[in-house]
Amino acid sequence: MSEHSHSEGRHITSYTTYFIVWVVLMILTAVTVYVSYLDFGTFNIVIAMVVASIKATAVALFFMHLKFEDSITWLFALFPLGLLFLLIGMTIVDTFTRILL
């Protein structure tokens, strides 16, 4: 599906691959909108975030070419996510474990 070329061995993603990724992204967008009309209680937000994360992963892996990058790039891409979870997680833990006077 994707072809390897170039003297340097750089990876070029084919138009077809991008098109397929785009179709997947559109289907997942439709799923997100559809699910929002159903009532799963608190699971609505969980489903929405899981679908959004699948979409984000597809964008990062293919559109942003992460799938074909070396391990140091992966480190640079994933490290902020760790910080993000720390930021959001710790803020939540802090806020909801306070004993209000």
Binding site: I72, T73, F76, A77, F79, P80, L81, L83, L84, L87, I88, T91, I92, T95, F96
Partner: peptide
């Protein structure tokens, strides 16, 4: 690599707002 590093700082920039969102929505 430099661009990815910059994108990381962008994620953290929005991260503060996402944290605020999570708290107030809860």
């Amino acid at each position: 690599l430099g661009m990815w590093l910059f994108l990381g700082t962008e994620i953290m920039l929005f991260g503060g707002l996402f944290a605020a969102y999570a708290i107030f929505r809860a």
